[in-house]
Every structure is written in structure tokens, then in C-alpha cells.
Design a protein around this nucleic acid. Sequence first.
DNA 1: ACCTGAACACCGTTCAAGT
DNA 2: ACCTGAACACCGTTCAAGT
Lengths: 219, 219
Amino acid sequence: MARPRTPLLSRERIVAVALRLIDDEGLDALSTRRLATELSVSGPSLYNHFATKDELLDAVVDSVIGEVDLSMFQPAGTGTAETPWPEALRDWARSYRSALAAHPNIVPVLAQGPGRRPNALRLADAVFGHLVESGWPRGQATRIGALMRYFVTGSALASFAAGFPSDAEVYDAADYPHLGEAHRLAGHRGTVDEGAFETGLEALLDGLALRYARLVERS
Amino acid sequence: MARPRTPLLSRERIVAVALRLIDDEGLDALSTRRLATELSVSGPSLYNHFATKDELLDAVVDSVIGEVDLSMFQPAGTGTAETPWPEALRDWARSYRSALAAHPNIVPVLAQGPGRRPNALRLADAVFGHLVESGWPRGQATRIGALMRYFVTGSALASFAAGFPSDAEVYDAADYPHLGEAHRLAGHRGTVDEGAFETGLEALLDGLALRYARLVERS
DNA sequence: ACCTGAACACCGTTCAAGT
DNA sequence: ACCTGAACACCGTTCAAGT
């Protein structure tokens, strides 16, 4: 057929199908040939739209980051008050985690940092900017951006509960005296992981609020 | 040559060389053929020692987890007092992060959970057991184990600072008004990431201590 | 410009053959 | 039991050829 009158592929469609493949079958299932088959084209066709597979992956990653809500960091406009930093951070962390946890198989790629991806850079800019404008010194604001990313990516990378086999025989009482109930964890993966995330998030915010209070009283 | 009088390979040596390869060149560089070459044998030889590549990876992962210090969770013996939970958790988290951050390329595999790996199960058992014996309700102890793993794996998965390109031209002031200094982050990756980890760890422990205090006063 | 098939140097894994 | 080479069905990517 060679070149069709109207292109068979677009970057958007390639990215969408690649993400679906990664979600459904894991990062290893994304091969250029498999993806091409899924798109009803031959393997090399993809190279008309992305220079390498890595560039394609970058686009997939940035599309996921683009789902994170950043509206809570909007600078105070005319009449609208700026959201207090603990509340903004809490709302953002929840949205960040939701976006990532919907696509856990791609989190290892995404956790490598923003690189040159526009949505990832916008996210870093918004968080850092809001913290600095809230009175955090720049060094502290950087650390908070980092530690929040540690926590959110760690929580989205894999389910804690599902990491424990459901097979009760794994947990020999002689070897692991306290894991007698661990085989039931995976069955409650939703609530366990959600509860751990919320507990950790509130603990972090409380701990940071203590530091903020010390900062304010010293000035 | 066929079967040599004394075996050319052992699981230990295979695991050690595989880990070095992953550390030096990344998870993708670990192919059975490449690893075999590094060990001066042919590719299929590895299958005399591991059933699949995944089983080999499991062994590599568990060898890393085995480096984590768990001595702070030792139950109180005759004359030795049990370490208070916040102190034990702090020491453990630092050792955990050190062990993982020494091998960041394998963290995505390891973060999938303990599975059936003995060192990973021992770790989960020690943390959970110590928290329960310190008075935390079992549900809370599970959540704390989970949220600590989120934070530690997230911090070891990738450097926050190194994720920002050193090329100043990436940070166009029109697009990212607050990232004007971000190109300098990667140059300070050690101190930035270390500072973020310590700030987050102390904030988490402070937040958890608040909850523990509420727990105690209610009983 | 955008698709194709053929080709290159790779993969993980199986298996029969050797000692 | 533990190694080998040959083979199978895969990879990412390049390239000349087609419209």
C-alpha cells in the first residue's frame, strides 16, 4: 500500500494504544512490533512518528503526568485567595497518586525525573513556586518537592498488600512469627494501600507543619 | 568441554555478577547471553542454576534486601531493653534506603513486594512485629510498614535532583517561572536527595508520634 | 510524507548431545 | 550433574523501495 492518502497513525493514537498495552500487560509487553500489530501497521511504521522507542515512552509518561491536577497551585488572582500550602499539597498529592496508580507499570519510567517532558516540568514548577510563595525557603521547598515525589511514586509503584502472596503456607510461623495473617492482605489491597497512603500523607503534612511553625516563630 | 570436574558456576557467583551488571549498565543490560559472557560460559548454562531469568532476578533482589540491618528490631533479651519504635524505625529506614540506593536500577523489581523471598519476608516480619509489640494496633502497624516502604523505595528509585537536566536552556522562564535554578540541582544530587530523605523521614516520624500519643492517651 | 518487507544484531528458552 | 551449539520465536532499528 505504501503511503496512504490519509495517515494511518498519529502520535496521539500511538501513545494511547501504547499506554493501554502497558496497563494491560506490563512494560515488557510493549514492543514496537506488538504495538504496531495492535495499530494494524508494520513495525517500522512507528519510526515515522517517533525517533526511538524511548521517545515514544517519554510521550506516554508525559501524557500520564498531564492528568495530575495542578489547579490548587494557581496564584492568587483578583479576589481569589491563594490556597494554604498544606491543603494544596494534600489535594495535589491525592491527584498525583490517582494519576500514577491508574498506570503502575509505567511509574518506574516516570520516577526517573522530569527530564525535558513539559507536563513534568510544569508540575515541578507549580509545586516549587507555591511553596516558595507560601514562605518556605527555597532549599526547603526543593526538599519538600522531592520527598513528596518519593512518597507518591513509592505508593503508586506497586501495591503493598498485593506484594504478599495469598498462599498461607508461605508464612511459616517458625520463620515469620508475626505474619500469620499476611496471606489475607492481598484480598484487601484497595483499603490497605489507600489507608497507608492517607496515614502517611497526613503524618507528613503534620510533620511539615511543625517545621513551618518553627520557621514562622523565628522570623 | 561439556561437564567440567569442578562446576564453573554457582548461584552466588551468578547473582553477584548479575547485580554488578545491573548496577553498572541498568536492568536492560542484564540479558542471559550478556551475563553468560561476563561469566565466561555460554548462555544456556545459566539454566542449570536458575529455571528462568525471573528466578535469577528474584535471587538478586533478595541479596540486596539481605543487606538491610534489622538488628534494631531484636526483641528485648535478658537485660537488654527494646528499642523505642521511633528510634528503631529511623535507624531501619536509613539502612533500608542505603541498601536500596546502592542499587537503584533494581528497585522497581524489589518494590513489587516480598513475594516468596526470605529476606524480604524477614524484613516485613521484623518491622510489623516490633510495631505491634510497641503498642500499635495491627491495622496501624500494617499501614506504617506500607507507608515506610512507599517512602524508602520512592527515595531509592531515582535521584530527585538528577532528574532535572543540567542544561539551563530547558527551563524557559516563560514556561517555568520558578525553575530558573533547576539546572544546578543535578550538581548537588547527593546533598539534595539526602536532605529530602532526612526531612521526610523526620516529618513522618513526628507525624506518627502525634498519632501514637493520641492512641496512648485514649487507653 | 508515510507506509512496506527485508535485513542486522540482538533477545529468553528448549533440547539433544557430550562427559 | 553441568556444560555446549543449534534452533525457535522473539526483540529495536535501518534502509531501500513504493506512492
